[in-house]
């Protein structure tokens, strides 16, 4: 059967990996390709690069990072951050990304998601939604790295994005991001139950139990985490074994084939 996925996310700025805590206080945590190889060897199910370079010039560095990673890691790679034109999507895919994640541009111009999905196929278009709770059962979308409120309802927006051709939703709780208190499970479940595409739960994972809950309670298909893996607090293999023991179908390490 299909397995739940663990996706380590590397925030990349100017070609270097940084760690995000509530989207501020950035701390350098290493070289992206080296980290990617490490996660590949550890059995990560996919990799995600989020480019948080501030300037257009520095964004060019991501293509090189993606190229070098694709040469070394034979696993699915999602790249996001500042993707706003068909040309960006094309360049990332040509560099070796398998999926491209669109965030701010999806809110500013939903038709961009539709044209990207038509051009390259839904399977490579991920829409990244950053949401913050505004009342008991309501979450609103934030853009620009979580700094700008849009007043758009997250669940409604997720449905619209799927109608427009998004093949997957990367859902980040702004309230939980960097807190290590666990995913916002109510938010995750609300979005997962509203759409038919896979959901990646993100924002707040601090323990293996949080990852398990993201799948079992949040109905996510995949869990994304950054800091808990980066600093070796939990290895991906340990996380997978524990989740498997908790009853979640996981892809455990396979023996050498060649």
């Amino acid at each position: 059967m299909l397995k739940a996925r663990i996706i380590p996310c590397l925030d990349v700025r100017d070609g270097r990996v940084v760690k995000g805590i509530n989207f501020t206080n950035l701390v350098d945590a290493g070289e992206p390709v080296a980290q990617a190889k490490l996660y590949d060897a550890e059995g990560a199910d996919e990799l995600c690069f989020l480019d948080i370079s501030a300037s257009h010039e520095n964004r060019e560095t991501i293509y090189d990072v993606v190229e070098r990673t694709a040469e070394a890691c034979f696993m699915p790679l999602t790249v996001g951050g500042g993707v706003s034109t068909i040309e960006h999507v094309r360049k990332l895919l040509l560099a070796g990304a398998d999926k491209v994640s669109i965030n701010t541009a999806a809110v500013a111009n939903p038709d961009f998601v539709a044209s990207a999905a038509t051009k390259f196929g839904s399977q490579c278009i991920v829409v990244a939604i950053d949401a913050k709770q505004t009342s008991a059962q309501t979450w609103e979308i934030f853009t620009h790295g979580g700094r700008r409120c849009t007043g758009i309802d997250a669940v409604t927006f997720a449905r619209q994005m799927v109608d427009f051709g998004a093949g997957e939703i990367l859902l980040t709780s702004m309230d939980r991001d960097g807190t290590k208190q666990g995913f916002d499970l109510t938010l995750t479940r609300a979005v997962a139950n509203a759409v038919d595409v896979p959901i990646i739960a993100s924002g707040g994972a601090g323990t293996v139990d949080h990852l398990t809950a993201g799948i079992r309670e949040g109905h996510a298909s995949a869990v994304l985490a950054a800091s808990i893996f980066h600093f070796g607090e939990i290895s991906i293999q340990t996380a997978k074994t524990s989740m498997s023991r908790a009853g979640i179908p996981m892809r455990l390490k396979e023996k050498q084939k060649r």
Binding site: L2, A192, V197, P198, I215, G218, H219, S221
Partner: peptide, 16 residues
């Protein structure tokens, strides 16, 4: 509870 691993399209991820 494993709704995230069934019924969704695309069929996306690692399968046996």
């Amino acid at each position: 509870h494993l709704d995230g691993l069934a019924c969704r399209l695309p069929h996306m991820g690692w399968n046996q």
